[in-house]
Design a binder for these strands. Structure first.
Lengths: 130, 130
DNA sequence: TTAAGTGCAAAAAGTTTGCTCGTAA
DNA sequence: TTACGAGCAAACTTTTTGCACTTAA
């Protein structure tokens, strides 16, 4: 266990959001400037392989990470702010297992992300103009 | 409308799967060898911007495409073969609109992908060995 | 001491873009 | 003819990797 990994682990356990590698790197170098982005990549991969971290893909090209010990949940992404809200839904779980079964499959995992806008917010044009 | 775009459009409308750009390029060059991959990228982007194509991200780093006029559906990905099966589920739709509402949001879109294995198939180790 | 870990820079892989040339209309 | 599109190669972005050096144990 090196100093770099300790710092990265601390950053991760302090995070209650879903940072990408660049963001982890930014936070880690604040605590200890002699950490390279390669080490961040290597560390998250290691932690993912050990089941400690989970890699998420919310679109946008970069992987984002969250601790695995958070229990089973899905994500709602606020499309105006980028914020991620976690939620659970037992009925959803059951429903999807059934759907897979009906198609002749065994459900292994699923990706469910809701892209939503805070209720009452005005809809805007593609370019951001009202 | 150039010959290249015509070929790419033909390939797309003939496709009943969810090809990525490389695969589209492969199919297109079979019909007309003087098509570059840059043109494929430019064409799918154009078609996506015009709402004719939809870009999907099933993991694996590459974007995949499908026509927009297929109606509302979700995807089940066979994790052993990579094949994609489409399905619908009205209950799911309703459920997710409710979940978003409960959290104070308006559902704009959602991503739902089931990763599953054909029922009865043996589970294998990470390296593919039984 | 020594095996594991790190930094750096280069390499991959997927996608976009600048520039020049070709071609549809 | 001329403006839009294509080809090529270079650039870009995210992630991985080879290699020499450092360091924890």
């Amino acid at each position: 266990m090196t100093g770099q990994r300790r710092v990265i682990a601390r950053v991760l356990s302090a995070a209650d959001d879903h940072p990408d590698v660049e963001e982890l790197y930014r936070r880690a170098t604040t605590l200890d400037a002699r950490i390279s982005i390669a080490t961040v990549y290597r560390t998250v991969r290691l932690l993912e392989e050990h089941g400690i971290l989970e890699r998420r893909d919310f679109g946008g090209g970069r992987a984002r990470y969250e601790p695995s010990d958070q229990g089973h949940h899905y994500h709602l992404i606020d499309i105006d702010t980028g914020k991620v809200i976690e939620f659970q839904d037992a009925e959803q779980d059951r429903l999807m297992r059934e759907v897979a079964e009906r198609l002749g499959f065994e459900l292994v995992s699923l990706r469910l992300e809701l892209f939503a806008r805070r209720a009452g917010r005005p809809r805007r044009g593609r370019d951001g103009t009202p």
